[in-house]
Amino acid sequence: MGGWAIAVHGGAGVDPNLPPQRQEEAKKLLTRCLNLGISALRSNASAIDVVELVVRELETDPLFNSGRGSALTENGTVEMEASIMDGPKRRCGAVSGLTTVKNPISLARLVMDKSPHSYLAFHGAEQFARQQGVQLVDNQYFITRENVAMLKLAKEANTILFDYRIPNESCGAGLQMNGLPLSVYAPETVGCVAVDSEGLCAAATSTGGLMNKRSGRIGDSPLIGAGTYACELCGVSCTGEGEAIIRGTVARDVAAVMEYKGVGLQEAVDFVVKHRLDEGKAGLIAVSSSGEVAYAFNCNAMFRASATQDGFMEVAIWD
Rank of each mutant, 00 (worst) to 15 (best):
R22F: 07
E52A: 11
E57L: 01
R32E: 10
N65T: 09
Q23F: 02
V50E: 07
V51E: 06
E59V: 05
A12S: 00
G67P: 06
R68I: 14
E52P: 08
V50K: 07
L18E: 03
L36I: 09
I38H: 04
P62A: 10
S66P: 03
A45I: 06
L36N: 09
N44D: 07
P19C: 14
E52S: 13
S39R: 03
D15H: 08
S46H: 04
P16F: 02
G67I: 02
S70F: 09
V50C: 04
E52W: 08
P16R: 02
S39E: 07
R68F: 12
G69C: 12
N35G: 12
E59F: 05
G13D: 01
E74A: 07
E74G: 06
A12I: 00
R22P: 06
S46P: 01
L29R: 04
T31R: 04
D49C: 11
L30K: 14
C33H: 07
A40Q: 12
R56K: 15
L34T: 03
K27T: 11
Q23N: 05
V50Y: 02
P19A: 15
P20C: 01
A71E: 14
N44R: 06
N65D: 13
V51F: 05
D49W: 12
E59T: 06
N65S: 08
F64E: 00
D61Q: 01
L34R: 03
G13A: 00
R42H: 13
L34H: 05
G11W: 02
L72M: 15
G37P: 11
L29K: 06
L30M: 12
K28Y: 15
S43R: 09
L34P: 08
S39F: 02
N17T: 15
C33M: 07
V55D: 05
A45Q: 05
A47R: 09
N35Q: 13
N44L: 06
L30R: 09
E74W: 04
Q23M: 05
N35H: 13
E57P: 01
L58T: 01
R42M: 11
D15F: 11
I48D: 08
S70A: 14
N17G: 15
L36A: 10
R68L: 09
I38V: 08
G13S: 01
A47P: 07
S43D: 13
Q21N: 11
N44T: 07
C33T: 13
L72D: 15
S39D: 08
E24D: 14
I38L: 02
P20S: 03
